[in-house]
Design a protein around this nucleic acid. Sequence first.
RNA 1: GGCUUCGUAGCUUAACUGGAUAGAGCACUUGACUACGGAUCAGGAGGUUGCAGGUUCGAAUCCUGCCGAAGUCACCA
Length: 622
Amino acid sequence: MQVKSFKPMMIFNKLVSVVTDYLNAQYGLEIRESAVQFQPTRKEFEGDYTLVVFPLAAKVSKSPVSFAEELGEHMMVQSDYVEAYNVVKGFLNFSLSARFWKEILEWTGDVGVHFKQLDKKGRLVLEYSSPNTNKPLHLGHIRNILLGWAMYKIKQRCGYELIRTQIVNDRGVAICKSMWAWKNCSSGETPESSGIKGDHLIGKYYVIFDKKLKEEYLDWQKSREAEACLKERVGKDENAEAFFKRFKNDYFNEFSKIGKEVRDMLRKWEEGNTEVTALWEKMNSWVYDGFDETYEKLEVTFDKTYYESDTYKLGKKLVEEGLEKETFFQKEDGSIWVDLSDSGMDEKLLLRSDGTSVYMTQDIGTARVRYDDFQMDEMIYVVGNEQDYHFKVLFEILKRLGESYAEGLYHLSYGMVDLPDGRMKSREGNVVDADDLIEEVINTAAKNVEERGDMAHLSEENQKENIRRIAMGALKFHLLKVNPKKRMVFNPEESVDMQGHTGPYVQNAFVRIQSILGKTEEYPFELMEDYWKINEEERSLIQLMLSYGEVIVRAGEEQDPSHLANYLYHLARTFHRFYHEHRIINAESEAAAAFRYHLIKHVSAYFEDGMELLGISMPSRM
RNA sequence: GGCUUCGUAGCUUAACUGGAUAGAGCACUUGACUACGGAUCAGGAGGUUGCAGGUUCGAAUCCUGCCGAAGUCACCA
């Protein structure tokens, strides 16, 4: 085992080129190496890797079976590592030698080797949180944030330089509603005086506002004005009840007294009125303290926070510039639009007739501010799929404005999180609050730990930290194991599961290995030289470790951390089975013990590294 | 209604992008600790991959048409 500089990827490439060279020499076929793919052989067949020969056989017009035989024979002769092969239909399965697996095992010791050959990529701005300041974070935000954090780690590993940002939506009517309610319906309570977390306090007044508005609306419905309005605007086949249900928003804008007060407040805010601005600043600061606490519990941080109250101004300016360049156009009422119909989209409003900005305006500004700050090459927005169209339009606009980073824009669009009884509706109080959820998983983990009693000898502080890691591991894994694009149904009971396809299952494999390593002596690597009968479970573990780099790269390129989560589960499953089948301490020979010692040591490093990329840390005991 | 996305075991989901007998977990059920941690392992049962066609050596995956669900089409964010 003197091959310290040995690079296993080269074996793979060599095996591939044995095939491509042969096709070239014998048949004059130029085949790209990427077209020759070895996949792990399915369990029910003999062999380690499989080459699907059908497409190749078709190209040389031979029968798949005989051509597979031909290739297999050739590989046996050409490569020292190919020990045996068999052909089933058009599938060529080949087995690699013990020497191959031992050399791979040695190579896998340093997790970093998988990434050494990756090119340096550019600078990447990642936006992975975009909260509104009128209510606390909920389950949907958690999915968003955890996805973003995992992407940060994974992209970084793939060679990008990452800038983590959030955009705070701190302006607009919604915030004014909370402000109005606090001003009119509280006796000046603060987070300190009430003991309520700042973001929850604001949320409380947002709900109070909604209640007040509803009361006012109900009263109004009995008025003459309402009667007249109903008569005038009710639709055909519509009863009064249905009408009033749909009319609520128009009522707020046209008839509501408190609605008018809220809009006055917004106008004053935009004019820079000192009293309103002071209230706005005070209440926002409460919210930020609350958010920070939640972020801390989720173990995430940001390099830079942007506020829409800052960026919308630049957005306006860019829109006006776009108008001068005739990228945009103006309607008679003064509103500014972009016409994207030649790209299969619609006309889109960019600036209202009264000159105030809309959502799109802000996002144009925010993008440019970020470029001024960081000169990024690419940017990823982690935002729910309800905004797919918005981002499609935004990216097209930035392209037309000639922004240099416009070709590197991505919307990591994740599916909504539904509850078993349907969509979350904040209005109806049917939301899973982020802080509540975190508290709940920690309580559940604590209960489990207490029942087991495996941690009793640890210090209280130590126990608490382990419990926290297990709980967060369960929650995070549960959200990250499914494909981000898919809408997911979140069952609170399943999110605190700690058995089966879960985070704690992976953590358990890790903790188990640490426990074993603590009980055995260290073996020098050379001692495994005499171990030749590598069993199926051992081979599977090495094979999995060998594919780690591929998995991460794929997760990065597809912006899908679930590939990594499922890989780690698979690795843990394979380890647990191995553990039950084979002795590590007191193995059948010293060579076997040495081999397994290094094997599990390496495997545990992959657990720790992979989970870290998902934002999950390992407990010391569980 | 237009556009977008999605229908896989009772529930939650996977399938290396067109490959072998669709793989897991939960729940249900039968077993396994006098050997390294039972938050584990082995087994059983559970599937016409929404339906119907088509493309080919081969389809959950690609094409067409239905059926069903969600999102979006604001001078909201």
